[in-house]
Design a protein around this nucleic acid. Structure first.
Ligand SMILES: [Zn+2]
Ligand SMILES: [Zn+2]
Lengths: 331, 331
DNA sequence: TAATGGGTGCACT
DNA sequence: AAGTGCACCCATT
């Protein structure tokens, strides 16, 4: 495992794409797929809203390589390096999803007239997936109205502490390398500045090594305990959160950070409730053959636990990964 | 129709490939094909013995573009320009075969271990085409023995009039441009020198603008009327022709040349009897729906002449083969 | 399948 | 980020 690797839940895809431009992004958890043919639609379900039109570059019974569809004129778009490598693990009896080269040589723009998109919608009709169809009706509407498709929940702080703030712009492992005290301080700083400073988000079309952005989804637990079945994936464009709500965000975030940094904590439930792609968890976790375990059934989908990589590495004794995380001294 | 175009019967493929390197080669007549899938094996049947391993570059319901299979390492073989364009004519309700860019960027060598060839043989088994299977057994044998696969019936003359001789190296159109008198003289010259002068033929791997060769098939009508059913495509290596037979060859050639050069001649029937690829006309003209013409039925394919290897070696100056035969002084 | 040229998705090898 | 054989496409006239 030479290249830096980060694991992200697919329902936090936006954050993964924004924040891990120089790493392999391991998407996990993913559903079990009845057949190879179900994989592409599942990916399209989450990548179309990102403005990424996927096609298969190469495939066989144990592997599918996806890339961006070429839709431009002659060599207008140099070959885009973005890839998604989906491989079947015989040992684990499941498909692994890894995003490779998370950069693009072109603009990311949803295109409702795309050929792939039409085929995708046909597939949804075939599957009777009205939920997703409704969701994409909204996507098309936003696209036509020239509105942002994804809830734009990120903003930046120009307080000068961006680099420190950036520590929070991660899943767990990197946070471990920062002293708790610094993190706390930074959090406070962000909290104080958050309503005064805004800044345009850099274009996703060009690689950004250290995007100075903070994704508030990290701390957005607002609807954590609402019924997943009630979730409204067709909600219209998000409005800016109220100052009170933002305070809640940051309070939650602070708590969450503390929890994560507390090595005495035994629970690893992260209570991820990201709605970046307005996800329908039923679709993601439930759409395939394998029945949910009792434990899974009892959990509300948006409470599904996400094991931090560090937890996995520790439990599995993955020394290589621990060394990569630079936490060999961790105790 | 901008590019020069020449029409050749597929059973004279060797001549066409040798002599028309800067023209479109229209193969005609061809059988009627029941389905699109029958086209590739038919082409392979005649191009494998040429050392050309064909694959489909692009196809749809009304078109198949063939090119040489790439079997070399990375960019060792620059892309070969050779193409065969097969298109369905709605008007004529038949498939048209046109060879485009009759040059190659690589050696032409029969490869019995080729993947395409294996599939081709499977197809033959499927079709129960034992005749062709037997033929290719012979091809494989010759290949393994490092013997020339095609009857090499062309030879050259070093009398210094090669360029003029070249005028005969055509089907009808080009011959028209040469004065009859010159042509006649040249023919005589060739006749007198034929057993004394040899010269190596340039490799077919590189384009040859004016190959200084004369194809004796032009004049070989020897066995034109023998029974086709008797033809033996598996005949063992040919023995040298008798001097009398050689004289017949040249007499026929003279007659034929005169006919071609006579611009008052209205018929373009070439009475092709070429056996370059040890052809079974039944396969070519009969394997499909279309019945043989009366004229075709009256021709007796298996008496079509096959010139001995030694003749070819002499004519082409194939020193390697002559040395193998140890007959460099043969007269 | 008007004729004729090319792009590219993607599974085979 | 296998390389390529092949076919589903589209564009122009
Ligand atoms: Zn891209
Ligand atoms: Zn070639």
């Amino acid at each position: 495992m030479k290249q830096p690797r980060a694991k992200w839940s697919p329902d936090r895809l936006s954050d993964a794409l924004l924040n891990e431009q120089n790493k392999l992004i391991h998407l996990d958890p993913v559903p079990l797929f009845a057949t190879r043919n179900d994989i592409k639609p599942w990916l399209q379900r989450i990548f179309f809203p990102q403005g990424i039109d996927l096609v298969i570059e190469r495939s066989d019974s144990g592997k599918i390589i996806f890339k961006c569809k070429k839709d431009c004129g002659p060599d207008k778009k140099f070959s885009c390096p973005f890839r998604i490598r989906v491989t079947f693990s015989i040992k684990l009896q499941r498909w692994n999803f890894v995003i490779v080269n998370n950069v693009h040589s072109h603009e990311l723009k949803f295109n409702a007239s795309s050929d792939e998109y039409k085929k995708f919608k046909k597939y949804l009709v075939t599957q009777g997936d009205t939920q997703t169809l409704k969701f994409f009706e909204e996507v098309e509407y936003k696209s036509k109205m020239n509105l942002p498709i994804l809830p734009q929940k990120t903003f930046t702080c120009d307080c000068g502490l961006t680099d420190e703030i950036d520590w929070f712009d991660v899943v767990l492992p990197r946070a471990k390398t920062a002293p708790v005290t610094t993190a706390t301080t930074t959090t406070t700083k962000v909290h104080k500045k958050r309503t005064t400073a805004t800044r345009p988000v850099p274009s996703r079309a060009t690689p950004v090594q250290k995007p100075p952005v903070i994704d508030l989804d990290e701390i957005d637990f607002t609807d954590m305990f609402t019924d997943p079945a009630q979730r409204d994936c067709t909600a219209s464009s998000p409005s800016p959160p109220s100052p009170a709500l933002r305070d809640t965000y940051f309070d939650n975030f602070t708590q969450y950070s503390s929890l994560l940094l507390d090595d005495t904590a035994t629970t690893t439930a992260t209570l991820s409730t990201d709605l970046d792609v307005c996800f329908n968890p039923d679709y993601i976790f439930n759409s395939q053959i394998e029945p949910l375990t009792l434990q899974q059934q009892q959990m509300k989908p948006n409470e599904l636990p996400e094991l931090p990589e560090i937890e996995r590495a520790l439990s599995q004794g993955d020394d290589q990964y621990l060394e990569f995380l630079n936490i060999s001294e961790w105790s």
